[in-house]
Amino acid sequence: MIYLTKGLLNKQYTQLDDLPDFSHLVKATRAPQEALNMTDEQLAEYKSSSVTYALYGAVNGRQRRDDVLNRSVLFIDIDDESDYQTLSNRLANLFTALGINFVIYPTISNGIKDGARLRVGVELDKAVEFEVYKKIWLVITHQLHVKGDITAINSSFKQLQGLYVKTSQNALNEPIITTDGAGLPVDKFVSVYDKNAGEYQLKKAHESRENIATNGNVPRWARKNTAIIACLLDPEQSYQEFGGWDNMLTAVGGWTYRETHGDKRATVNTVASVNSKGSVPISEQELKIKIKSWFRGWTY
């Protein structure tokens, strides 16, 4: 089943069943939304309000708070230091060699932020629940040595993926689409994981930037401030560096609390604003409970 929303704040899915799931993704990639001749700032607003987001699989309901039962297309969001052409071709060569149907396309941040900003959608030969989805994701990212966004396997199985949007900034990087293969053989990939589960732990598949050695004389506080500011501007693209959405909100709140000398109102408003920019934001009631708890650990 195909579930769509327009913009990050829409709480209800539009449900479609007129096409097979992967076919819809292919169609949306071949005939994308266009957001041409926009500034980087305008694209940030467009991403929040107008981009179409998708989830393929089965949901127990029509609201984004409802449980996701399974997923039929596996997505990997990649933020890599390579360039789009090099990395997309490497990924395409692997999937083509395996005879797997896939799409690769630049995200809306491609051409704005450094590195290879791209999204991979892989057809699965059957819909899978969370634990199986996680195993497949870990095997692929580990074998390809890519750093994927861990949200869908670590924090929220409900994560939506933005469909391809052609912008003036990413227009030079063309999508790659293969439809003459088959769905990824789920059972075979699960077997690979199960035979050597220790090799495919999250730390192997995705190492946060905090654990990667850095060069130069940039002070630790400056690097931290840079990371926080990135979250304030575009948390959806930055929160994985903190190990999850909740961790990112905690970091943003603690930082704001210190920098405002204990201004609780400013801190609450900042955390709420950042949370609202997420594809699956924490509910208002749940966020209030979390912030109340977090305040006990924040100092200034």
Rank of each mutant, 00 (worst) to 15 (best):
K27R: 13
Y300N: 11
W255C: 03
Y257L: 06
S191F: 04
K126L: 05
D114A: 13
L55V: 03
T214C: 04
A35N: 04
D40M: 09
D234Y: 11
S283L: 08
T52A: 03
N211E: 05
V268N: 09
W294S: 05
T86M: 09
D83S: 10
Y3V: 06
T5L: 01
D180T: 14
L287A: 02
T267A: 08
R258W: 06
S23T: 08
K204E: 12
Q169N: 09
L74R: 02
L233A: 12
A213P: 03
A116S: 15
A54I: 15
Q237C: 05
K134M: 05
L55P: 00
S238Q: 11
Q169V: 03
L94S: 06
I136M: 08
E199A: 06
Y200N: 06
S88A: 15
N101T: 06
D234G: 02
Y46A: 04
I100V: 15
G262C: 11
G216Y: 10
Q63N: 13
G115A: 07
T270D: 00
V103K: 00
D83Q: 03
K288V: 11
S283Y: 07
E236M: 05
D234T: 07
P219S: 06
G61R: 06
K166H: 03
T39R: 03
K204H: 15
N60V: 02
T107K: 06
P219Q: 01
Q237P: 00
A54F: 03
Y13H: 09
I108W: 05
K166V: 03
S50T: 08
Y300G: 04
M1G: 12
L233I: 15
S276D: 14
Q42T: 04
T178Q: 15
S109P: 00
V120S: 06
L138V: 01
G198M: 05
D21A: 13
E207W: 01
V139M: 08
E41H: 09
L87N: 07
K11N: 09
E284W: 02
T267F: 05
I282K: 12
K135R: 14
Q85N: 15
T250G: 02
Q169S: 13
W221Y: 14
T178M: 12
R209G: 13
F189Q: 10
W294I: 07
A205K: 07
N93C: 07
T226V: 01
L172I: 10
L91V: 13
C231L: 04
I282N: 05
A182P: 00
E284V: 13
E241W: 07
D194S: 11
N275G: 10
N217A: 12
A182R: 12
Y133V: 02
N269A: 15
G99P: 08
A152L: 10
P281L: 10
A44M: 11
K134D: 02
Q161T: 13
V128L: 10
Y53A: 02
I78Q: 08
A44C: 00
V190S: 01
T250R: 15
K195H: 05
T52G: 00
A54L: 13
K134S: 10
E129G: 15
T141C: 12
L94K: 12
F22H: 08
P106A: 08
L87R: 10
